[in-house]
Simulated assay, not measured.
Amino acid sequence: MKYTLIKDAEDLRFLTVKAAKCIAEAQFLVVDSAISDEINELVPVNSIKLHINELRSYLSARPDRLPSNIVHISGNDTDISEEEGSIVCYLKGIGYQLSIIPGVNVVNRIAGQNYFPLTIRNRNESFWVCDARFFYPSVKEMIEKIHAVASSNAAMAIKHINIDALRFMATIISIYRHQETPVLVNDFGGGVDCYTLMEIQDRLAEDQYKLVVINPCVRMLKATAFSVEEVLESRLATG
């Protein structure tokens, strides 16, 4: 028997593809708050739907007829709450296996912290998100990751980077990317400028930058301003 907990599911925009598919196939649903009309449209008409507070008593009354698959739609986008933890312990005790599907916000946060590439839905474009505050040139795995991503077609979005780290990364990226590759630079004063990969190695004057995007999509090149939120908007992740 399986219990699937879908996090950050109050809004359809925050569902991963995997989560939406799971809801669309669910025959037994648990909710802990009101869900949007858009998500409700995914729910099969003949499925059973209960509030989380009703689940324990419902299952206790039917020990010989337990559902084989329970899908829990949670609006909470953080770690498992105390209430959810209690339900998880109860379900494990009666034989259920736990599976968690994070929402887009969580996926983006994990990706940004661990240097995983993100794919933009409906377009053949990828972002690699890196928080340079956690970048250390002396760590071999980090250098290998830069080489791997630079050799792909992914746009490289680097947050909170100092000029020395940027020049170091640019040297590696230049091995794989053309010198005229566009680079958008956002400083902490709010200024936005476009350079080439070759230019950022000797023309930048600030010590620290809020966001640097190497090989941005056309939409971002046409924009007059951009931000971290532009890079990490909800359409950037798939499940």
Rank of each mutant, 00 (worst) to 15 (best):
M1V: 08
Y3H: 13
L5T: 04
I6S: 04
I6G: 06
K7N: 03
E10Y: 08
E10H: 06
E10L: 09
L12W: 03
R13S: 14
F14Y: 14
F14I: 03
F14K: 12
T16M: 07
A20D: 03
K21F: 07
I23Q: 08
E25K: 15
E25F: 07
E25S: 14
L29Y: 00
L29N: 09
V30I: 15
D32R: 03
A34G: 12
A34N: 12
I35C: 03
D37A: 14
I39A: 09
P44D: 08
P44K: 10
P44F: 11
V45Q: 12
I48C: 04
R56A: 07
R56G: 00
S57W: 00
L59M: 11
S60Y: 00
A61P: 03
D64W: 02
R65V: 02
S68H: 12
I70E: 03
I70C: 03
H72R: 06
I73K: 01
S74N: 02
S74C: 11
G75L: 09
N76I: 08
N76L: 02
N76T: 05
D77C: 04
D77N: 15
V88S: 03
C89S: 15
Y90C: 04
L91K: 05
G93D: 11
I94L: 01
I94A: 11
Q97W: 00
Q97G: 09
L98G: 02
S99Y: 09
I100G: 06
I100P: 08
I101M: 11
P102V: 06
R109K: 11
I110S: 10
I110C: 14
A111R: 07
Q113K: 12
Q113S: 13
N114A: 06
Y115M: 13
P117E: 05
L118W: 03
L118T: 08
T119F: 08
R121M: 13
N122Y: 09
R123H: 12
R123Y: 14
R123F: 13
E125L: 10
F127M: 08
W128N: 02
W128K: 01
V129G: 02
D131Y: 05
R133W: 01
R133V: 01
F134V: 03
Y136G: 00
P137C: 10
P137K: 09
P137R: 11
K140Y: 10
V149F: 07
S151D: 14
S152F: 04
N153L: 10
A154W: 06
A155F: 04
A157G: 05
H160Q: 11
H160R: 15
F168C: 06
A170S: 15
I172V: 13
I172Q: 03
I173C: 13
I173H: 10
I173P: 04
S174L: 09
Y176R: 04
Q179Y: 13
T181N: 06
P182D: 04
V183Y: 01
N186R: 15
D187L: 11
F188V: 13
F188Q: 04
G189I: 07
G189A: 13
C194I: 14
C194P: 00
L197D: 12
I200W: 07
Q201C: 11
Q201S: 11
R203I: 02
A205W: 02
D207R: 15
L211A: 08
V213R: 06
I214N: 01
R219S: 14
M220L: 15
L221M: 15
T224N: 14
A225L: 09
F226E: 06
F226P: 04
E229I: 02
E229A: 15
L232A: 04
L232K: 08
L232S: 06
R235I: 09
A237T: 13
G239Q: 10
